[in-house]
Simulated scan of single mutants.
Amino acid sequence: MKSYHVDLTPFLNNSGTCDEHKDCGESSFSVGKSYFPTEHLPKFGELTQWEDVTFIFPTRTNEGFDNVILEEQTIPVKQNSYSTVSIFGASNNGNFFDTVRLFLDDKEVHQFKLKLSDFIAEKSWFDDVPVLNCPFVRNPINDLHHLQPKIYCHHEVLPPNITFNKIKFGENPFIHIFSITLGNVEGGNVE
């Protein structure tokens, strides 16, 4: 299966990772100023494999942003007929879901519920699978070794013949997205 890696760079609006011994800034993954430790994640911009899906860990912006908090963004993608949507992310302060809508120009062609478990939950609340696990949570005061944060994958199999060129999110400040990969069974590289 060929993959299309969605460029989220223009939409990054939150700092979810923090380097060791660095000031992580005002933005954080959770209300409690918690972060994923950078040294236990893929390098920024690195292509990473999970099962048969590849994803690109985002590049950190000049502002230090590395993930997307849902704020009703409309994200353009290359128009194609895709078979899957894999969203890598996590929720904070609980387990959350929201509607993702797929559009072809201005016409909605499909929607589904994005469900992501809390990043410090011991077990997945939904059917999302932990893809990246860290041994501790980074906090400005000290690392919290009794919590092991996770980034999950919500893997959505689409009905046949769904062609779209936009992904629209709802508004949920507790859902964070690091990467999106679209799968295409029709062959042909869509990168």
Rank of each mutant, 00 (worst) to 15 (best):
V185N: 14
E63N: 13
V31C: 03
E51C: 05
V31E: 09
F164L: 04
F164G: 02
K33M: 10
D128M: 10
Y152W: 04
S117A: 07
G187P: 08
V85T: 03
N13Y: 05
L70W: 04
P76G: 08
V6D: 00
Y152G: 00
G16Y: 02
F164V: 01
I177S: 04
D143Q: 10
P37M: 06
G64K: 12
D118H: 07
L147C: 04
V185R: 12
W125R: 12
S3G: 06
N133Y: 07
F174Y: 15
G89H: 05
T163R: 13
K113T: 12
S124T: 14
F164D: 06
T99F: 04
N165P: 03
E71K: 14
V129N: 01
S27D: 13
F36H: 11
D52V: 01
I162T: 12
T181L: 02
F112V: 06
C134T: 14
Q79H: 09
P76Y: 08
N161S: 11
S91N: 02
F112E: 02
P130L: 10
V68R: 00
G170I: 00
P76L: 04
I120K: 10
G32P: 00
F103A: 05
N184S: 15
C153G: 03
F44W: 04
E108M: 15
D66W: 02
I162L: 14
E186K: 15
K168F: 02
E63P: 00
N13A: 09
P135D: 13
P160V: 08
N184H: 15
S91V: 00
V137W: 07
N189F: 13
A90R: 00
P173Y: 03
